[in-house]
Design a protein around this nucleic acid. Structure first.
Lengths: 356, 356
DNA sequence: ATAGAAAATCGAATCGATTCGATCGGATCG
DNA sequence: CGATCCGATCGAATCGATTCGATTTTCTAT
């Protein structure tokens, strides 16, 4: 294709005005020709498009569009911490995928944000239309405050009820209680819990007595409460994150005690797999010497021959619901909170405690 | 805090003009007070900030800022297909993490985009400043065309040389040849390759003879070429994606043949693990009956007792380099292409072929 | 042939901020 | 005491498009 001398000049980028001028129409008409809204004769549209091509015009500048329309077409997704950590657990990916499923259809993009210190500015000034808080976010208060002030729709997955925040919930407490009852029914009396982080410090170690006061991570808290509802007292270990190796560490720590538990409830499947690994390394057999329960129901290929007893949560569905909710709110609707239910799955990692 | 009647009215959102008016200063001064650029007396700044608080002003509208500044502070990351698929392989997460590492420091956000059909519009009209193409993108041509027209910096990870696209490369061909030579050195003569997808159709099955013509996925192609450089001819199986189960399928298919190969080169570690699983299921032992080589060097916890022979690529570093490059280009620099090198790691999954 | 309706096009205001050059006041210096 | 200079503040232009109401053109029906 021939380039005119003008077009080849290193002029910045052409804008709609330039295109309109070349086509011999007004800016408004040119805009109409591009957006398709409003009546424009075929001839005019062709002229405009031809002019655009000649100038190598790439279409309306999204930045200007956002300003004028008051919409940027971007939905923020706030992940708890580093991407690395968040994406290590398939459950987060599943949720993200669910969100993308729904929002993608409208052409909205997902902007990844983290709550980490430095990025606070980011969260306050990203050009997004709405936001989804995903993962067991730990210090929501601040984040939500900033976002609320900006007056944008907020959807939170598994967060405590907050004003002007639509929540997509999960029956964490009841589900955990179900797992606990299952173990109780099998005859277990001395159990332990491997928990997800209590707050953002990521400190690891034995679960302190006053966990209910110091914990800020909602999911962790609810799942602990579920176990307490059944067993009252129990010991626990706070893992550094939802990974197999963190679970393994926790497993070692719990199983090396003088009187180790006969069953361990892990707050995620990855943690559970880690515990199983630790048990194996310590020469214990699952479920004969130790019962293990997970949470999430991510059919990990790492489970090997184990069919983990766990609580299957509809992660993708949760993401979808969040996506739908966010889109709905952008449409001006006021969706209602949803609470999803986990399904108990009995695998082959739980059994009656070993006879003494 | 008291709210004035005015502030509680359901007026849209306050803008800088409103704040300036309330503070009794001009818009320009108010802007200066917020941005910190330019000299503003402490008294004035306080006045402005107070007015902002009174109006519940959340700070300058990012959309307007982007327009004026010509920057949105957003870097697009184009992933090959569905998030689900892309994030299943840790190698992609590692790269993304590397990118985030570098770009995050400047407060830039990462916008996730996919190349999937419907989202084409998305890629053409997202308000981003630059873009990183990550993963073995299959149909770059179109995508790059659109982006180039928009005149934004483009960085591609593992893509063929293209004009005005900065590439972050990997020695795929040489590395694959290294793996092949390793097997050859051990005495293997009949090997097979399990490849990543050849193009976006995700069709699976035996590797066709004319792979070099029909394949559009650069990484896949280069790695195949590396093997051909050593073995000349070989059979292969195209996997549906980089997952363990896809590898397992491929493994079954290759190993059930009348004269199965004595060694299999998989184009990713996940595929390799899948092949090993298939071998086990077929009663073969690795490496005695079958040697397996992977690619990537993701120390997966799923490997179990195997120490996979593989090519360790510096994935996070690749991401970092891409992030740095993109930032550099935004600064007006013109970084040079980088080519990373994979390190051959001999694990315990390769051995001489079984004696006949 | 002409009033009236419908279609196409245009002008101008607007979205919300940034930024450059001009202006104004007060302090400094000779 | 007057010229100079500097810091603080302001006006106005600008970024690039969208959109509403007004105007012009085109077509239909009488």
């Amino acid at each position: 294709m021939l380039m005119t001398a003008e077009a080849s000049e290193a002029r910045p980028r052409p804008n709609l005005a330039a295109v309109a001028a070349l086509a011999g129409v007004s800016r408004s008409t040119a805009s109409l020709a591009f957006s398709g809204a409003g009546p424009v004769s075929q001839a005019t549209r062709d002229k405009v498009l031809a002019a655009a091509e000649q100038l190598n015009y790439a279409g309306p500048d999204p930045r200007a569009q956002s300003l004028r329309r008051g919409r940027s077409g971007i939905i923020g997704v706030v992940i708890e911490d580093r991407l690395r950590d968040a994406f290590r657990d398939p459950i987060n990916i599943a949720m993200l995928d669910g969100i993308a499923d729904e929002t993608g259809s409208t052409g909205a993009g997902l902007l990844l944000l983290t709550e980490t210190g430095g990025d606070r500015a980011n969260i306050a000034s990203a050009p997004m239309d709405a936001v989804v808080l995903v993962g067991c976010s730990t210090r929501l208060e601040n984040t939500v405050g900033v976002l609320r002030q900006r007056g944008m729709p907020i959807v939170a997955i598994e967060a405590p009820e907050m004003e002007s925040v639509l929540s997509i919930g999960l029956d964490n407490r009841v589900a955990s209680a179900t797992a606990a009852k299952h173990l109780q029914g099998l005859g277990h009396e001395r159990i332990a819990v491997v928990t997800l982080p209590l707050e953002d410090s990521r400190s690891t170690g034995a679960l302190p007595e006053n966990w209910e006061e110091i914990a800020t991570a909602f999911t962790t808290l609810e799942r602990l409460r579920g176990v307490r509802d059944v067993f009252g007292e129990f010991e626990g270990f706070v893992a550094a994150g939802s990974t197999i190796s963190a679970g393994r560490d926790a497993g070692w720590s719990l199983l090396l005690q003088l009187r180790p538990p006969t069953a361990i409830i892990a707050q995620s499947d990855l943690l559970a797999l880690g515990v199983i690994r630790a048990a194996k390394e310590l020469g214990m057999s699952v479920p004969d010497d130790l019962s293990v329960v997970g949470f999430d129901g991510v059919r990990s290929e790492e489970a090997g021959s184990y069919d983990l007893t766990t609580l299957i949560q509809p992660a993708v569905e949760k993401g979808r619901a969040a996506g739908r909710a966010v889109l709905g709110m952008l449409e001006g609707e006021t969706p209602v909170s949803v609470e999803f239910t986990s399904a108990f799955h009995r695998g082959n990692t739980t059994a009656p405690p070993p006879a003494r």
